[in-house]
């Protein structure tokens, strides 16, 4: 491929990606007739519903990250250490959420955990929130598991564990003080992806009737003219921030290692 053709392909592709972002930002600034203004942003940020749904989603994202870490890190560690032959199976399972559509999974939740079932999670607000968090954890499982597993690949789990055991450390200490710090970058990458996913998620929250940011976006889209674009811009910035943070932590630790 010649260099000119490469540039052409790349620039054409980038145009496709930049135009919608431009359109979105342009609309978000056009609330005041005849001039650009931040009116739409002011209106959005002043909306109590925005603040409620936004903080709800942030909370859910943080809870999902904590739960996902508690679930994935020990499992990935244990599989590497004691059950390496299970790895392909676990990997396959963690990829399933990419294949089974989220709408199907949440449909299953609604039918399986309704008020008349053996575990009536949807019967209470707390239960539904819990169910939604499990749903988010499922959605982020492929990213979280891969990130952590990749992180574990770079360290010698067996030797570290045996060394810690020979010094008298228990499992909690090993995981918390030795494994986790070593895969922290990987875990953080997984965490930021999870955050981005949860903040934008619509289907599960809408079908479980929880006041999350995604359904709020959709509601605004159906009812307001300019505010949705301000919201979309905010959502885009959040996504960008998450990905930027992943880059940052990765780069930061690289420098850290090189300096040693």
């Amino acid at each position: 491929m010649t260099r000119a053709a490469s540039w052409a392909i790349l620039l054409l592709g980038l145009t496709y990606f930049i135009l919608p972002l431009l359109g979105m930002i342009e609309f978000s600034l056009s609330m005041r007739r005849g001039e650009y203004s931040f009116d739409a942003y002011v209106a959005v940020l002043g909306d109590p519903q925005f603040r409620q749904t936004f903080s709800y989603s942030v909370m859910m994202a943080l809870l999902t990250i904590v739960f996902g870490m508690l679930l994935v890190v020990p499992t990935a560690f244990w599989v590497r250490l004691k059950l390496p032959h299970l790895r392909p199976v676990i990997e396959f399972i963690t990829l399933l959420p990419l294949v089974i559509p989220a709408i199907v999974v949440v449909f299953g939740y609604i039918r399986l955990y309704n008020t008349s079932s053996w575990l009536p999670l949807t019967g209470s607000v707390l239960g539904t929130n819990l169910l939604l968090m499990f749903g988010y954890a499922t959605l982020s499982l492929p990213y979280m598991y891969r990130a952590v597993d990749t992180g574990l690949r770079t360290i010698d789990v067996t030797t570290l564990t045996e060394a810690a055991q020979s010094l008298g450390a228990g499992w909690i200490t090993i995981l918390g003080r030795i494994i986790l710090p070593n895969v922290l970058v990987a875990v953080l990458s997984g965490a930021f992806v999870t955050f981005a996913i949860v903040m934008g998620e619509f289907t599960m929250a809408a079908l479980l009737n929880r006041p999350a940011f995604g359904p709020y976006l959709q509601l605004m889209g159906a009812n307001k003219a300019y505010e949705p674009f301000a919201l979309a811009t905010i959502a885009f910035i959040i996504t960008w921030a998450c990905m930027g943070l992943i880059q940052l932590v990765t780069r930061f630790t690289k420098h850290d290692k090189a300096a040693r």
Binding site: L22, M24, G200, L217, L231, A232, A235, F236, T239, M243
Partner: peptide
């Protein structure tokens, strides 16, 4: 990484603002 995660509702808005009846393009 950003664009692959920028899906869902906001993405729809971005395209409405671009290729919708009153969109930029």
């Amino acid at each position: 990484g950003v664009a692959s995660n920028f899906a869902g509702v906001p993405l729809a808005f971005a395209f409405l603002a671009t290729l919708g009846p009153l969109g930029l393009v």
